[in-house]
Amino acid sequence: MNPADVAQAALPLPSADVSLIALFLQAHWVVKAVMLGLLACSIWVWAIAIDKMFLYSRTKRAMDRFEQAFWSGQSIEELYRALSAKPTQSMAACFVAAMREWKRSFESQARSFAGLQMRIEKVMNVSIAREIERLERRLLVLATVGSAGPFVGLFGTVWGIMSSFQSIAASKNTSLAVVAPGIAEALFATAIGLIAAIPATIFYNKFTSEVNRQAQRLEGFADEFSAILSRQIDERA
């Protein structure tokens, strides 16, 4: 028997295991459920966040590229032909939708200019709305986790402390060694809630402002493009 073992044996109370796993395993099942739920939330939040980060940077790059091409003096017809061949997104989608409407109006024999302007704007608005919807999708999850996560964690904590107090009452022993593990495991729930909620809130704020910026950029482009088309309409009418 080496000295360390002796020392261990000499301790009156074997110090409770307070590693993360032990904290989780010792917890009441309600607290466990809360912890697992919050962990899932956290994973989901980070998945969304990573996805959105890539999406936004991709969208931004696409917009840049499109604007460069649009204002490069290249003919709009050629641009349309190049873009309409493949599925497009964001600004390009908006452009393609407007051009398609324009072409249809001109290629059909009816040559109805009346209302063409309005139709183009409608089409562009729809495509912008679709685009924004795509950008915003799942952001609400972040908002929800960000606002409800701490409460859920707190619920777990309250429940854990409640049950640990009950066990104190049952064991009729109030020494800190008895109380501490239960409270530690209960607080662990709040910790997880905060860990899930803080990034969610930060990402939500960041992504919301990003979406707003991109939507504004899209609308600006739409206005400009509809102005150009409206000039064309007036010239040809």
Binding site: S42, I43, W44, W46, A47, D51, F54
Partner: peptide, 23 residues
């Protein structure tokens, strides 16, 4: 869906963090 990939990334991230926490 892209989320699948990012979900995997997220899970990996959490596993890393929790593993670090355990240690």
């Amino acid at each position: 869906m892209k989320v699948d990939k990012t979900l995997v990334a997220s899970v990996a991230l959490h596993v890393l963090v929790i593993g670090w926490g355990l240690i």
